[in-house]
Computed example of a mutant assay.
Amino acid sequence: MPKIDPRVDEYIEESEDFARPILEHLRSLVHQACPDVSETLKWSMPAFEYKGILCGMASFKAHCAFMFWKQSLIESDAFPKEKTAMGSFGKINSLKDLPSDKVIISLIHKAMELNEKGIKVERKAKPKAEIVVPDILAGELKKNKKAAATFEKFPPSCKREYIEWITDAKTDATREKRLATTIEWLMEGKRRNWKYEKKR
């Protein structure tokens, strides 16, 4: 028995007229290629799972998209060299824009194999910019151990909020005022936007 999700039925029914036959066809091919696949919704779009996310599809006002979760690990001439939209096959406006059923089924089998082997896509984390404490703040923190201790315990995002607030000041007078407030709040263990934080 195919594992059908009624939410996918609703998604297809609510799609544009041109999109319905495309989505139904793609859905049928996924089930044909992978009888053990399960349907679900991911990011409000139909997705197919088999030992992890396998592939997904989406419809928009003027085109559809079909995407393999691990496309970067699948070699195929079926994938357009230049991406024109989200998805593995670019913008799909009709069934004619899709590769042959045989090709799509072959790609689904390759995606299944990757999941069966537990092969993951390496996500390269972007190196975070180093936090540079301006001299004006560094000098004041040296004079105040309590404020410095609070500042050191803060995550990078909280440190940046204080640094940007001070360095973005338009005049020296404003900068000095913000610096004094920063030290005062740090002594109280407060973050830059403490006024807007929900009370627990």
Rank of each mutant, 00 (worst) to 15 (best):
A47T: 02
P99W: 01
K195T: 00
R160G: 00
K96V: 07
K61W: 05
Q32V: 07
Y11F: 14
S157N: 10
S59W: 08
K153Q: 14
M1G: 13
A78L: 06
E82W: 03
K3I: 14
G189T: 03
E75Q: 15
L137P: 04
G56F: 07
A180S: 13
D168S: 15
E184K: 14
N115V: 02
P127Q: 05
L26I: 09
S94C: 06
H25M: 06
G56I: 01
N144R: 07
L95G: 13
R20F: 00
A19P: 03
E176P: 02
F154L: 15
A169K: 04
D5E: 12
E75A: 13
E130M: 12
L26Y: 03
T167H: 04
S15W: 04
I53P: 07
W69V: 07
S59Y: 05
K177D: 10
C64V: 08
A125I: 09
A78W: 00
P46L: 05
E24C: 10
K198N: 07
M67G: 14
H63K: 02
I183E: 07
W43F: 12
V8D: 11
T182L: 05
S15H: 05
A19F: 08
P2A: 09
A58W: 05
N115Y: 02
E161G: 00
I108Q: 09
F18M: 03
Y196G: 15
L179W: 04
R123D: 13
E24M: 12
K198E: 10
V30E: 06
M57N: 10
K177A: 12
D101Q: 04
L54A: 13
T171S: 15
S59V: 02
E16R: 01
K143Q: 13
K81Q: 12
K120E: 15
I183Q: 14
I105P: 02
F18P: 00
Y162E: 02
A62H: 14
L23I: 02
D97R: 07
D97S: 10
D5W: 11
L98Y: 09
K128D: 08
S28T: 06
A148H: 08
A173K: 12
R175A: 08
I131S: 10
P21H: 07
S72K: 10
I131N: 04
L41P: 14
C158W: 11
L29D: 01
F79S: 12
T40E: 13
K170F: 00
H63F: 11
N193V: 01
P156W: 03
